[in-house]
Amino acid sequence: MASSIPVSAPADLAPRRRVPWLAVLAVGFVGSLFLMAAAAPFIAPHDPVRQSLRLRLKPPTMEAADGRAHPFGTDHLGRDVLSRVIHGSRVSLLIGFAAVGVGSLVGATLGIVAGYRRGWFDTVIMTLADAQLAFPFILLAIGIIAVLGPSFPTLVVVVGLSGWMTYARVLRAQVLVLRSREFVDAIHGLGGSTLRIILRHILPNVLSSLVVIATLELARAIVLEATLSFLGLGIQPPTPSWGGMIHEGREYLDSAWWISTFPGLVLMLSSLVVSRLGDWLRDVLDPTLRGE
């Protein structure tokens, strides 16, 4: 049909699907990020927490001064920045994925049940979602972590719950439509339980949206974790994390720019690539989500 109407309109959407090499590149990047986190002790050239007074604040160089070079330089305690960036990916990915797990589990469950049952439950959940969207969440996150102390479980729950509303709102809207379809009535008539309808028939229909949101949320979770670490509320030193490294390097911006810059660039690139991957998945799997 498009060929019979000589307008240029659809051209805007087409190229991205025809050129999947960017997506392949993104998948490759995320894959190597995984590898880097998994194999950190084997590929990092130095011990990420070993300090050396003699090697403090050395600028990036490919020349091997003491056996192995410091391509990203060393920090104020003489630790190798490259090795710390490599090990830092573990904190980012671990908390990022665990948080997305928590957020999607809570958000998807509440959203699907709200959309399916409607009534007061729906009203309560959607009001809660609106309230949290109206809230400067970073303040609440800082407050909770300052109270409970910055541990791994606390961070996962806080970062995870910071995004549950997105899942809940989108899935609720989809389930509202799905539940009025004939196949739901048919299964109901055949004696299928509500749980069975939701798990076997509703869930597969909203799975692609769930994957898209989870990918976009992963980018957000990684950045939020780094932000909290930057404020001193993330995983505590000496465990390297990107946000924590940027915080440490801030004191030395004037004399040793590399301490903050390298972890920051890797963080920025990761967030950019993962969110682009999410955008691409959305265009392929579920273009109706564009407006969300």
Partner: peptide, 11 residues
């Protein structure tokens, strides 16, 4: 859109 605010400030 995807740059972390705090790092953008530092840059």
């Amino acid at each position: 859109q995807s740059a972390p605010t705090f790092f953008l400030g530092i840059l």
